[in-house]
Amino acid sequence: MKLSQEEANQYHRHLILDEVGVAGQLKLKTAKVLVIGAGGLGCPILQYLAAAGVGTLGIIDDDVVAISNLQRQILYSTDTVGQPKVDVAKKRLEALNPHVNIIAHNTRLTRDNALEIIREYDIVVDGSDNFATRYLVNDACVLADKPLVFGSIFKFDGQVTVFNYQNGPTYRCIYPNPPAEDTVPNCSEIGVLGVLPGIIGGLQASETLKIILGLGTVLSGTLLQIDVLSGKQLKLNFKRNPEINITELLPSYEAFCGISSSVQELTWAKVQENPSYYNLLDVRTPEEREAHHLGGLHIPLSDLNTQWNRIPISENLVVYCQSGKRSAKAIHVLKEHLKETTLYSLKGGVNATL
């Protein structure tokens, strides 16, 4: 295998690096990397890996572009709102580098498909935003013996590390158990500084390139924490826990993380097909309600136990919040009181309608 003249021109700044050169660029060309999620972290990860010449890039995501994504998900634009993220990303990345093979998996990663998909790649980069997916990805990478480049973001803070690298520690070594349900909100509920995913995603791309090229010190057993408001960085060392032994995937990662699967979901498109058939209940805060709402009755989740009797008798009630997490919890509260009502959680919440 060799580089074409077009590739040599495109990768010139790599080729003149003594530590990379033609041999290193060929390593990149033959590498296969899977990126979990094409959102805030996934966008910069994908762009830098594609630009660097990673030969095969897989993208797995089942979401569509929403207007609220554009504050940080820089692969997308207003004219792509409503389109599948993996399709838009594939088109944009192929325009950036036609020498890279982009494989779009327009689906959600589940315990049923995780091992089959992950086994096709050399390295997995996690850009997911929920604990159930993180534990699933970790366990699948351990079983498939694949290094996992991890990143997470929270408001103004970010973390980066590498799991399962050369028999190093895994996600469960530092986070053996998930946090209690609803104790850690995601960015759709609490917000995130738009530039932060770019910083953390860029570092994840850097760790991926280091692994492929065999350069530098990989962040295995080291958790890098960054606070963009103060500019402070902190490295925390951790070791492999020999008592953790992953032999198979769990039956349900949602159940492991305390997420109930018994809540029925309904899309906004389905509600709009017959709006008079459904009553709406907004369980967000007054501030969120004032900023934007979809109509219907408003009772904050914190008041639901005492004010549920304000809800009119209805056979079909659609409960909504910003992302779908609080509405699912609200349904568990309402089930105790509205036993004759069919309860739905709006899938993706208000975010999915923007």
Results as ranks from 00 to 15, higher is better:
P312V: 01
T306P: 09
I311K: 02
E315M: 02
S323N: 09
L301V: 07
S314Q: 07
G296M: 12
N305E: 10
L304I: 11
H298M: 08
V318I: 14
G324T: 06
G295W: 10
N305R: 09
N316M: 14
Y320G: 07
E315L: 10
G296T: 08
I299M: 01
D303V: 03
S314V: 15
H292C: 12
C321R: 07
Q322G: 15
N309R: 14
Q307K: 12
L294E: 09
L317V: 07
H298I: 10
I299K: 02
Q322S: 11
L297Q: 01
L297R: 02
L317Y: 14
V319A: 05
S323Y: 10
P312E: 01
I299C: 03
H293L: 01
I299W: 07
L297T: 04
S314D: 03
K325Y: 12
I311Y: 11
L304A: 06
Q307A: 14
L297E: 03
P312D: 00
L301H: 08
H298F: 03
P300A: 02
Q307H: 12
I299E: 03
L297A: 02
L294W: 11
H293S: 05
V319I: 12
Q307C: 13
N316H: 15
G324W: 00
I313R: 11
L294Y: 12
L301K: 08
V319C: 09
N316Y: 15
S323D: 05
D303I: 07
N309S: 15
L301N: 07
I299P: 02
P300Q: 02
H292I: 15
H293A: 03
T306N: 04
L301R: 08
Y320N: 00
E315C: 06
H293M: 06
I313Q: 12
W308Q: 07
W308D: 06
S323V: 09
D303G: 02
G296N: 05
H292E: 08
L294D: 04
R310G: 04
D303F: 14
I311V: 02
V318P: 12
S314R: 09
